[in-house]
Amino acid sequence: MKCHKTTVKRWLNRWTQTKDLSNLQKKGRSRVTTSEEDQMIVELVQEDMDEGITSEDIQQELRRQGTNISRSTIQNRLLEAGFKFSRPLSKPLLTQQHRRNRLIWAQSMQNYNWNKLIISNETTIRLHAVGKFFWQRPGERKVVRTVKYPLKVNVWGCLSNSGFGRIVCFQHNLTSDFLCNEIYQNALLPTARSHFGRRHDWVLLEDNDPKHRSRFSIQWKREHHITTLPWPSHSPDANPIENLWPLIKTKVSNQKPKTIKNLTRAIYKEWNDLPPELASKLVWSMKNRVHDLIESESEYILY
């Protein structure tokens, strides 16, 4: 076995003392920072959260306080504390009026019955869009060729607590006439009948797009007994269907469609393959969204 005598003695002594021959946990390298220094690093990030402090800035500030810690150690301590060095979320600027309206709306919706809601929205899905993530090494970045003006398909979709409704794909610009006489007539109303039967107490959630609020659209919905939920401006974070579109776009991109026809077919397939329980979870997230809006005093919420 080519085993040295001292090694044999060591294992025999260990067996005599502990009756345990399993590998012991190794101590590893000793920690180079104290708990107080770890706390200092975290506090510096929290104090300068709005300024975008870097590990180099933290290192310089610690040196001014008489503490010398490497940048890699600072980064490791921040990762341990749950921080991630990433881009900030880019959101439209909320005025005081926007925030006031959002807060008033959220307070009025605290006890709302989300079971009778149909949530709708539109998006654009482009051909050859880059919707995938890649594991990449430094200096070996994945290159994806893109087209400057790619062909695109506009998509309208809806969902309720009962599942996903119909979608409509179209290439031209959305108008009030097409919205009412094609989308509402052939997608929204059939979805309502499928999910709510002959009841007319369901409510439509849609944003404040001018086509939704035009005189033509308002009159059409009034004639067809469609009630809309009051909606505050600049509130995509409160609309759960906004979280669904990135998922659809990624799944469609994975199919690598080459033509508009294939792109449209992929959109319908991925939409129809969505599990109904996902729609229910998205609808019931409205309760948490309303709560978070109130807690944040109508600032943007992380949805």
Rank of each mutant, 00 (worst) to 15 (best):
E140Y: 05
R137Q: 12
H4V: 04
D57V: 06
H200R: 11
L189I: 07
K91E: 06
S298I: 06
Q65K: 11
P150V: 11
K9E: 10
D237F: 02
G52Y: 05
F170Y: 14
R99G: 10
D292F: 03
I58V: 06
D38N: 15
Y303V: 05
W220I: 13
I167W: 05
K26G: 07
F216Y: 12
G157W: 06
K256G: 02
R10P: 00
V130H: 15
V8P: 01
C180S: 08
I301N: 07
I294D: 02
T34K: 01
I58Q: 07
H4M: 00
I167F: 05
K211S: 08
K251D: 14
L103G: 05
L247N: 14
R222V: 09
R213A: 07
D273M: 10
G28P: 07
P230M: 13
P276L: 07
T95G: 10
V283Q: 03
K116D: 04
L24D: 07
E61C: 06
K84V: 07
Q96K: 08
K26A: 01
N186D: 11
D177N: 11
N161Y: 05
L302F: 00
L274K: 03
T54M: 15
R126W: 15
Y300I: 06
E47K: 15
M109N: 11
E299Q: 03
I301Y: 15
P240K: 09
T146E: 01
S253I: 09
L151T: 06
P92Q: 13
L263H: 02
G163P: 06
T7Y: 11
G163A: 11
K152I: 01
R193C: 14
S108E: 02
Q110N: 03
H200Q: 12
G163H: 10
G197W: 13
N23I: 03
T33Q: 10
T227S: 15
Q110D: 00
K249W: 04
S108L: 00
L188S: 05
R29I: 15
E277G: 04
L204M: 10
H98D: 09
